[in-house]
Computed example of a mutant assay.
Amino acid sequence: MGRLSEVVEDYMSKTTGLKKFCDRCLNTKRYDGNVVLMVVDAAFDSIGLNYFNSIVPKVLEFEEKFVKEGNVQNLNELSNLSIEQVKEIWTNKRSWNVAFSVASYLHELGEGRGLNDSQALRTWARNADLENWREDSIGKVHGVGLTTYQYLRMMGGVDTAMPDKIVRRVIEELLEKAGEEMTTEDDIELVKTIEKIAFLTEYKTIELCWMTWLVQSEGEGIRMEKYGDVLDRV
């Protein structure tokens, strides 16, 4: 496994500050610990637009209008918003269905157990299952695919990965360079393979996942160089 470690280390060396960000994610402290913004982030990200250019600015716009200047201070208040109230920020109705439905479920889970929003997300994530994700209450929400499901689990404290197309491409490239034959045929197998790479190389699975996005070329450099400061905010 020496070659695998060398290849992974080469990729990871380009991602200064990644561990700190991933630890914050696993501690449910993104967006200063605001679970409303984490859910909105995941909901916007569910339609596959550029994360740093499209998703983050709109999440911060939502924060400004509805969290700082408005009345959305918890998941219950998020779930009670209407499309009409928020469509000027984000027009995609499926995204809002994800945001409102996930917020509603987590609020009910927390209310039933005497948990705050962060505790509710972490309780759900801890008990949510990868292989049976389609049977999960959040997995059943229209617009929630495995990638969004995994993203929410990560922000709820689970050290796992999202099996999106960029993650797949970089992981398969990494395995080819290392001369390793590990299965990545379907999304669940891909997640398990990333977990295995993490175990063998002593990195966290979430670190490998975020690395794949941050080493992508954009303009004259890579995203880590262009958006490194944004990680401190989100």
Rank of each mutant, 00 (worst) to 15 (best):
N34P: 01
M224D: 09
I197W: 03
M38W: 01
Q119W: 04
C22K: 00
M155G: 09
V234Y: 02
Y31E: 00
V215F: 14
K65L: 14
K29G: 00
V141H: 06
W133T: 06
Q150A: 14
R24T: 00
P163W: 07
G219Y: 14
L60M: 07
N50C: 07
S137I: 12
V230M: 08
A43T: 03
E88V: 02
C25R: 03
L190W: 03
G33I: 01
N132C: 09
L115Y: 06
K165S: 15
D186S: 01
S79G: 13
A198I: 04
Y203K: 12
M155L: 08
V72R: 13
Q73A: 04
L174N: 03
L115G: 05
E181L: 01
L146E: 04
T205N: 15
I222L: 14
V167G: 10
E61M: 08
F52R: 03
S101R: 05
W213T: 06
I197D: 06
V7W: 02
E63I: 07
E202L: 09
Y31L: 02
N34H: 03
K20W: 00
E207Y: 03
G112A: 10
M182Q: 00
R113I: 02
E111A: 15
V215L: 13
W213K: 07
S137H: 10
F44T: 02
E185A: 02
H142V: 07
H107K: 12
M38L: 04
V72Y: 12
S46R: 10
T201F: 03
R30M: 04
L190S: 04
Y51V: 11
E189A: 12
W124D: 08
G228I: 12
E135I: 01
V40S: 06
L37Q: 10
D45Y: 07
K177W: 05
V234P: 03
N92A: 07
L121Y: 00
T201V: 08
T160A: 14
E77Y: 04
K65A: 07
T148N: 12
V167T: 14
Q150P: 13
H142D: 08
N80F: 11
V167Q: 12
R233I: 09
K87N: 05
E172F: 01
S95T: 05
L106Q: 02
E6S: 11
A198P: 04
E63W: 10
L78I: 10
K226M: 15
S217E: 15
Q85Y: 02
G156K: 05
L75G: 09
L200C: 03
L175V: 01
L18C: 01
D23N: 02
C209A: 11
G157I: 07
V102M: 13
M224K: 15
E218H: 15
R24D: 01
G110R: 04
N34D: 01
T148P: 13
V36E: 02
T212L: 14
D229V: 08
V141P: 09
N53K: 13
E9A: 06
N116M: 05
D232N: 12
V40I: 09
G156F: 02
L214K: 08
R168P: 07
R94G: 09
C209D: 15
V98R: 06
D41C: 05
E88F: 07
N116I: 11
V35Q: 01
E202K: 15
L49H: 13
I171C: 10
G70C: 05
L121T: 03
R153I: 07
V167K: 06
L18Q: 01
M154D: 10
F66C: 07
L152K: 11
I197K: 09
